[in-house]
Each structure stands twice: as structure tokens, then as C-alpha cells.
């Protein structure tokens, strides 16, 4: 009997990409899709575009190509971020056009530094209402973003900074492996994914491989136990054109090619139509 329940539980956890996105996303949700250059959950982002969610409040340290696409597709109302460029290439033009011209819709920004975002995720995972750290010395961001506050250390009087914790409705990450039970392991540049998952109310993890048993390379590998994750989805290649350490490398050419697509509304719209007309194929 017990065994049977376990199987039912397992089946509920492992979903298709369409199911996982449809189950956990909703219009207006606060969504964090993390992966610091590495393991960016592109396939999941594309599925959000296909399902047409609106007015999302996206959170991500580096919006990268993935949020440029979601913003250009008209899914996003607000962005909390810390560095909005195409790494090593230049601008994210869909992001820029949303901020500079309100196209395809105005984008509210809640801008921070990397240190603040990283601390805010850790605070979210720790059940803290805010993150406290040292930063923003003489920086103008503090003057234009009301969610950056200073306080005095209660022990030394030293100036400290507080920013609200990040508590996403849904965090989505991509990882290398999950077990059939739904335990997840990731390695390489691990970014803020562990914090982002543990800070969220629900977490979707797309993975390269589902294996019978996880065999972590070390007792200190980054592991997210199944009970911290809402859905595991088998999506090989789901981080392309970013990369999955041990599986495939970063498609730097795709990032360079994105420049021309992102820069031109028409070319972007062609890209968008193409995306909407194709399903993710496993």
C-alpha cells in the first residue's frame, strides 16, 4: 500500500513541460528563472511564451536573452534585475525598447546590484523579510529605487543596506539530473539556483536526464531534494543556447546572432511566430 502511494506521488511530480507550466504559472505571477549564464531554462521560458501568460513580474540577476524574448513577446509587466546586457555582445534590445519606448508594453524596473540580488535570494531562502549587506556606497541606484534602504548596525552603528527578500511564486531552473523520485542535482557554475528554489512557493526543474538513482560526485554536491521541488520535467537540451556542464557547451554564436534579431522588431516578430508555431520536441 505504502509503495503504491509513493508511486502516485512520483508520477505527480514528473510532468511534461506543458503540464508543469500550465499547473504552476498564472497571469501576474512573480517568476524567477535563474542560471548564471549556465543552465538557463530556455525551453521553459519558451513554453511560457507559447501559453501566453501576461503581466508577469520577472526576477533574474541577468535578464539575458531569455527575458529579452519574454519581454519582447509581451509577457512581462515588471522586472527585478541587476545586469541587463547580452553578455560579451552588447544590448538586449527588447528590454531596452520596453524601458525606453514602452514597447510592446511599459516595463516597470526594480533595479539592484548583483550583490543585492544574491543576498535577496539567500534571504528569501532563509525566510527573512529582507537581506542586509554592505553595498551601494555612493551609488545613485539608492536614490532612484525606493526598495533600497539603509540602516545602522545595532551593534557597531556601521551603515548597512537592506533590500526586500525575493519570494517568487514560481522559480524555474534547469539542472543536469533528477532521480525518478524527483531529487535534483546540479553542478558547474551553480549561480543562485539553490537559493532561488528554496525561496519560492513552487519550483519547476527541467533536467537533461532522469536517472534511477542520483549518484552525486561528492557529498557536498548541490542537491535539491524532491520535497523542495514541485515539478521535474525531462527536457534534454532545455538550456540551449546557454549550456549544461557535462552535456553541451554555450552556443556563443547564437548569442552573437541574437543581436540582429533583438535589434529589429520585425525580425523579432518572425522569430516569435516561428517559436509559437513549433512545440518543444523531446
Amino acid at each position: 500500500m505504502k509503495r503504491c502511494f509513493l508511486i502516485i506521488d512520483m508520477q505527480a511530480k514528473i510532468q511534461t513541460l506543458q503540464e508543469a507550466i500550465a499547473t504552476h504559472l498564472f497571469d501576474g505571477a512573480t517568476v524567477a528563472m535563474e542560471g548564471f549564464t549556465h543552465l538557463i531554462p530556455f525551453a521553459a521560458g519558451h513554453e511560457i511564451i507559447r501559453q501566453g501568460f501576461k503581466n508577469l513580474e520577472l526576477v533574474r540577476m541577468t535578464p539575458d536573452m531569455i527575458y529579452d524574448q519574454l519581454i519582447g513577446a509581451g509577457c512581462v509587466r515588471k522586472l527585478r534585475f541587476s545586469w541587463g546586457g547580452n553578455p560579451g555582445v552588447g544590448s538586449l534590445y527588447r528590454l531596452r525598447e520596453a524601458i525606453e519606448k514602452g514597447y510592446p508594453q511599459p516595463l516597470e524596473v526594480d533595479e539592484h546590484s548583483h550583490a543585492a540580488m544574491a543576498a535577496a535570494y539567500a534571504a528569501g531562502a532563509s525566510g527573512m523579510p529582507c537581506a542586509i549587506f554592505k553595498g551601494y556606497y555612493g551609488a545613485d541606484l539608492e536614490k532612484v529605487n525606493p526598495s533600497i534602504k539603509t540602516l545602522a548596525c545595532p551593534f557597531t552603528g556601521e551603515r548597512l543596506v537592506a533590500v526586500p527578500a525575493i519570494r517568487p511564486d514560481v522559480t524555474i531552473i534547469h539542472a543536469q539530473k533528477a532521480s525518478k523520485k524527483g531529487d535534483v542535482s546540479l553542478e558547474g557554475i551553480v549561480g543562485v539556483q539553490k537559493e532561488a528554489v528554496l525561496a519560492a512557493k513552487a519550483a519547476i526543474v527541467t533536467v537533461e536526464e532522469i536517472v534511477d538513482e542520483l549518484q552525486p560526485s561528492s557529498p557536498n554536491a548541490v542537491i535539491l531534494p524532491s520535497w523542495t521541488v514541485s515539478a521535474v520535467v525531462h527536457v534534454p537540451g532545455g538550456a540551449k543556447p546557454s549550456y549544461a556542464h557535462g552535456y553541451y557547451s554555450r552556443d556563443n554564436k547564437a548569442y552573437m546572432d541574437w543581436e540582429a534579431i533583438s535589434k529589429d522588431r520585425e525580425r523579432f516578430n518572425e522569430w516569435l511566430q516561428e517559436l509559437k508555431s513549433t512545440d518543444y520536441a523531446v
Partner: peptide
């Protein structure tokens, strides 16, 4: 690297830590 997180950086590093650890322990 083209990006700040190319795989090459991790493969040739002595160790790779999380981003919160990088900014808190090492930089701050």
C-alpha cells in the same frame, strides 16, 4: 570567455562557489 560564466572558466578553476558566496565571503 565571451560571457562571465562560460564553461571554460569552471573547468579550469580551482573551485567554483555559488554567486551569493562569491559576493558575500569573497568580495564583501
Amino acid at each position: 570567455p565571451l560571457s562571465i560564466g562560460d564553461g571554460e572558466l569552471c573547468e579550469t578553476a580551482l573551485t567554483t562557489v555559488s554567486v551569493p558566496e562569491m559576493f558575500s565571503y569573497w568580495l564583501q
